[in-house]
Write a protein that binds this DNA or RNA. Structure first.
Lengths: 234, 234
DNA sequence: TTATCATTTAACCTTACATTAACAAAAATG
DNA sequence: CATTTTTGTTAATGTAAGGTTAAATGATAA
């Protein structure tokens, strides 16, 4: 069985450092795409699927955090590692908020980076639920296209979904007829599990119920204290 | 419904720092068990299940790495975070080798620690591999789905069960036709065995009997002073 | 900037749940 | 058989979770 190399998107504006890092990673059997700024980074990200993103925080035009947020909108799962020169606490916290998987202060040791990458890849490997890349669903008489973020009822004009609506419905669909734990949605979509995110989620459940009303066979049931269940009655 | 706090094993030999850290974590809604050295840490680890281990690296008798290796032998999944005073590269690499999930250099910012803990817990939450617990039972003409918390009689509309109803019936079903000791249910479900929890349990037995009435062959018998017995007559 | 859309927070209401009380009935005990 | 202990059952109470709508905040693009 041919083992496919892992693909890394490296976004680093310093040309010297970026090239050195790229070469070093490639020597260690990673496929690396090197973007020289945030804009380019996002373009490249959209064009391909990556196993990991390494983002410099300080970049002209578009900093690493902004880029991370954009990436997160497209893909909630891909691991992100930030590179930063200054070890500012605010930065670190900001990073975790956008869902960083790790954090490295420059200058860092390349072996350490390699270890971190390995650890992250391993983590992701265990998660491998078949859900990672399913984007289209039939839900009763509805069709959900989660990539283009729309929901269509029969042949009617599709309804556009907001990012949160979309992710939530997708997560429910992935667990169709089964329990979708509150905690799962909160950690995966909201990246934080507290009173307010929980209430926010309830608001989105209400929105989804409204969208799903046209088909009486489709409903979102609550399991008190546990989560929700998207059921399609036959 | 009482949300179960996450359990943290903190192994730190410095009594001042350890206590401060423990209190800080407890203030943030974690259940913390504080061990003062590696030996004690391993003892405590074996006695309970933890969601996270925070290990100081430099400790007398048994250092953090050795402890981590022992822990990994017992449990391949539990996240481990190391605390270390010196930012030695060798240490960091060694840490990752024994399967660390993260690394913190003392002195560190408590908010950063909290963020890291959150991030780690989130990762684990995603893994949600349905463990091999038994969740479905046939009880006479009833079907109990203990994961989705419903009880169905023949093909009729399922009845929703409350968490306590559900767990109690599940426990009875696991002991079908056999004695289910009062004490077992009280310690497992109510986590306390006293007059009031006992009366509460009786109330739930009454509720279950009502649910089970439709099938005359199914009944919950009392064994005076001992417990209950879910019997299915043929 | 304004206008627009997404998301969060607030407010208010309803439902779900667990506990406790109260009283009745069985079972055990001396 | 009288008394105590345990169990059966229903109802009342307090609290937490969820449902829903609207307003406030934030973010984005024209």
């Amino acid at each position: 069985m041919e083992e496919q190399n892992k693909k890394i998107l490296l976004v680093e504006d310093d040309p010297n450092f970026g090239t050195v890092l790229r070469d070093y990673l490639m020597m260690n059997d990673y496929d690396v795409v090197h973007a020289k700024n945030g804009m380019e980074g996002f373009e490249k990200f959209k064009k391909d699927d990556y196993d990991l993103c390494i983002l410099d925080v300080m970049m002209p035009y578009k900093d690493g955090f902004t880029l991370a947020k954009e990436i997160r909108e497209k893909n909630t799962d891909v691991p992100i590692v930030f590179l930063t020169a200054k070890a500012m606490k605010e930065d670190v916290l900001k990073g975790y908020k956008v869902g960083a998987d790790d954090y490295l202060n420059k200058p860092f040791d390349s072996e350490v980076l390699l270890m971190k990458i390995k650890a992250i890849m391993q983590r992701k490997a265990t998660e491998t639920i078949a859900d990672s890349k399913q984007f289209e669903f039939e839900i009763g008489r509805f069709h959900l296209n989660s990539k283009l973020r729309f929901l269509r009822f029969d042949d009617e004009e599709p309804v556009k979904l907001s990012p949160k609506e979309n992710e939530l419905l997708r997560l429910l669909a992935l667990h169709e007829n089964d329990l979708m734990p509150r905690e799962l949605a909160l950690t995966k979509i909201w990246r934080d599990d507290n009173y307010f995110t929980s209430r926010s989620m309830d608001v989105y459940i209400a929105k989804l119920r409204k969208y799903l009303k046209p088909d009486p066979k489709v409903e979102i049931l609550n399991i008190h204290g546990e989560g929700f269940r998207l059921v399609v009655n036959s």
